[in-house]
Amino acid sequence: MFELSEGGLSENGLDENLIYSIDDFIRANRYRLMRSVLIIKNQKIVYEWYGEKCNRETKHALHSIEKSVVSTAIGVCLNNHLIESLDIPITQILPEYFNDEANVFHKLITLKTLLTMTSGFYWRNGPHLNDPMREQLKRSKDWLQAIADCNIVNTPNTDFQYKVTDIYLMNACMERLTGKTVYDILNEYMFPYAGIDCDPFIMTPTCTVYHDLTQVKDCMELSAIDLAKFGLLYLNHGKLNNRQIITAEYVDEATTAHIENYGYYWWIHEDGSGYRGLGRGGQELHVYPAHELVVVLQAQDSPRSKFYTPIITDVILKALK
């Protein structure tokens, strides 16, 4: 079983007073929906704050941090030769949907294209909970066909645009290439070693789909501590509990900005201090390699979709000695 030990704030380079003031900060700013604040420094749990009736094992929805989870699954596939390369074009993986006849640009879209959200498909983002294009995709009879029909307005690999088509496609590609779902892969190669307790992901008749497309409201849920382990995995160059789960090379590639500040489903900090995964409603997973620091924020989602990043920028980072 993989357990993280606990440690003190001062001895691990964090100002105690500032960190303890997090509670006041949350109260003063009326972050009523806040549920978890977890700080891991130098491989030790140095601070925890949990909202009403919550603790470090309470599970919360990840929302878009699922993307970073999918990225990890790809890393696992590469490491275990379930997928040979990121340069495989989708025309080879799902030829019945993606081919020259459908669109000449399809052959330029590789797994790497999808990981960097540079597929070039036409997309207009709507306000968070009300995304009309996602709705349209969701309601199509065969969503892979709908994506294959989607007009491509930018040459693939040139422009970054955050959109759901790329991650849906990524899931489908992974399943087609490996015969396994994201859950299967992680459950086999990561969860046991990381001591992560996770329920199976939502399944659809065709494949595991990034939750958005299902009619079900629930999405992947992890406790604060388990989510933190994902951060630790990358911090530790792909190793957890002495096991190389993903390669160090993959960690480097995934956490480097490719086009704009985005890696492989990871948002890269503009100042180069680290990277983060973000999920609607305030879910955040931050990694600061130079400081051996991993921070998890979790909150109850709401239509206003707030972010609580000031806890990190205004308090935690300031507390670094």
Partner: peptide, 27 residues
Amino acid sequence: PEYDDGKPLSVDMFQKNSPNGMCLHCL
């Protein structure tokens, strides 16, 4: 029936220039 998914129809689904209404192939 083939295309009906049980969900209600909205006004913008019939508008060619709305992201919800447009045919994604020809925009």
